[in-house]
Design a binder for these strands. Sequence first.
DNA 1: ATTCCACCGGAAGGGGCGGGCC
DNA 2: GGCCCGCCCCTTCCGGTGGAAT
Length: 428
Amino acid sequence: MRQKISSATASACLSSGTETLIQQALAASHARRIAINPSFLDDEKLPEAERVAVLQEVFHRNIRMRHLERLAKFLAPVVTGLLPPNLLIYGPSGTGKSVTCLHFLSSLSGMCTERGVPFRYCYVDLTTPRSCFGAFNELAIALDGSVRRYRKGIALEQMQEMIVSGLARDSGFVCVLIDEADNLTSDADIFLTFLAKTLPKRVPVRLFYVFLTNRLEWEKNLDPRILSVLKKQDMIFEPYDAMDLLEILRLRVEKALDTHRVEEAAIRKIAAYASRETGDARKAVELLVKAVKVAEESSGRLTETEVDVAEHSLEVDKTEELIRSLAPQQRLALQACYTGIGKHKSKISTGTAFECYRQVCEGAGMRPLTQRRFSDIVSFMDLYGLVNALVTSKGRYGKTRELSSSLPRQVIERMLDGRFEDQHTLLH
DNA sequence: ATTCCACCGGAAGGGGCGGGCC
DNA sequence: GGCCCGCCCCTTCCGGTGGAAT
């Protein structure tokens, strides 16, 4: 019915002048536009020079000053020709570890050039988990400055030779910044031994390393011999507090948005949300972007209301994304749990949920997993907050986990309607 | 105090698969 | 390109458990 009407209006529009409609839509969206310069909301889209300029400005606003001071204390000897210690920097994601270090190293490099001290730095990004081979690959690419990737299947020794020969012609100081160093999945020891022992002996340059990690316990899993060779200094980056986040957000707002349409209270609220959660600056900017989008689609002003709406919809987006990324069996299990919870109007036991799951599997034409495995999946979903699973004892009637809902109603409805299914089947 | 339920969750082992290595 | 190792997913088995019922 609804479809009929909409197709009827559509054909009417076509005949009566689609162009007018498009113009109207454009004018309306223009009138509500807040993001004048949206690329400033996404660092990835900025050209290198602009990105550096934005960073300069961030650091001019007394953000991360203490950390810059400490970095300077450790690394400044380079300018006078002394080899600084290696650094290990801890801090949760989104606390600006990489950004601060890159900014600092770029300034340091500038000073060294002025004073005629040969210095360069390179950035090894292990954000996506890498094996030992992958790490060598990244390092080789970072050192020789090319974009090519070395072919898989080369022996590790050969990779090491390439790295050595890449540095053989160099002289002066080289700083290697290794981001997310804890992401080495296998044989981290081989990689680090090479960095700490082999490489410095075999190349004429004077090497020092800065490792970044967000796991405090990383160091404990390492071979103590490597640690002693590294002779490193430790530093900690705390999460941003609300005031820092507010400064960062204000800068973005000034650069990217129409400030007349943005209320200060809204920005404060975003900063408060983000600092209450993890103090992650990326998340704060993400929320700002969403709020701007919400505002542009509705009132055309960014106020606290838009921030609340954006916060909620971001939450929904995240859980829906999580559900979409589940393996088929996990998704069936999740569906079964919510079918069961819906049917019984209350908490259900693992046994009941498993029964539902068997039926759902039958409906979907899939072989059900064992109850043991199902139980593991429930634990997993509990861990990720997709269901609440509380272990309770019902005395003589056994011990079980009570499953209850933990998702917003609209997400459950969409899931049970099978609306996530479509995209999944399209993918396959 | 003891029994007993209904499941928890650890351990071990098999099969499949992808990535590292040559 | 092909081999092989290690990892992941899954099953099977089984001892463990908190508290209502007896």
